[in-house]
Design a binder for these strands. Structure first.
Length: 161
DNA sequence: GCCAACGTTGGC
DNA sequence: GCCAACGTTGGC
């Protein structure tokens, strides 16, 4: 099966590129997702080796800042069973977990961020889920979109306003 | 800090 | 099953 591509959003104050870089083996458990659509993508679609655009939301401007990859397969998100955790779900049981997590490893920090305004303005990216459905925290990216975003992020020359 | 978009909850 | 109220996300 061909490699698939994804975009994951994170708030850099909560868990951003700096945290990912500092994680053991530059790998983290992508947990805490409590949206059914995102859950289904994590659990049913994401595969070892898939490419991940690491996106910082909640900063100005929001931007894709790094490339990552999926490690292994999804597993039940243990935070759903922890009563003290913000993502605690009393309706979920270990036998029938509702929420899933997956490991993500940092592969490459982009020389320059690819900002949301730039994505909006780039031909070929107008159909990105990022622009169509603003609040989905894990979303699919097409191979063409992946190539375009990666090329922009690796471009060394300064961006012209 | 504001607020629009939109997913989720719950009354009926 | 409908839909209004509510809560959260995330751009600005």
């Amino acid at each position: 099966m061909a490699r698939a591509y994804w975009l994951v959003k994170s708030d850099p104050d909560t868990f951003g590129l700096a945290h990912l870089r500092a994680s053991p083996r530059r790998t983290t458990s992508w947990d805490g997702v409590r949206n059914y659509q995102a859950r289904s993508l994590i659990r049913d679609r994401m595969r070892e080796g898939d490419g991940v655009l690491f996106y910082h939301s909640g900063q100005r401007p929001p931007a894709v800042v790094a490339l990552a990859e999926v490690v292994g397969r999804a597993y039940p998100d243990t935070t759903q069973f922890e009563e003290t955790h913000a993502g605690y779900d009393p309706a979920s049981t270990p036998a029938h977990p509702r929420w899933y997590a997956i490991d993500v490893r940092l592969v490459e920090e982009l020389p320059r961020p690819v900002t949301l305004p730039e994505i909006r303005a780039t031909s070929g990216l107008e159909d990105m889920v990022l622009l169509k459905r603003g609040r989905l925290s894990v979303q699919p990216v097409t191979p063409a979109e992946w190539r375009t975003v990666v090329a922009l992020g690796r471009r060394r020359s300064e961006r012209r306003a």
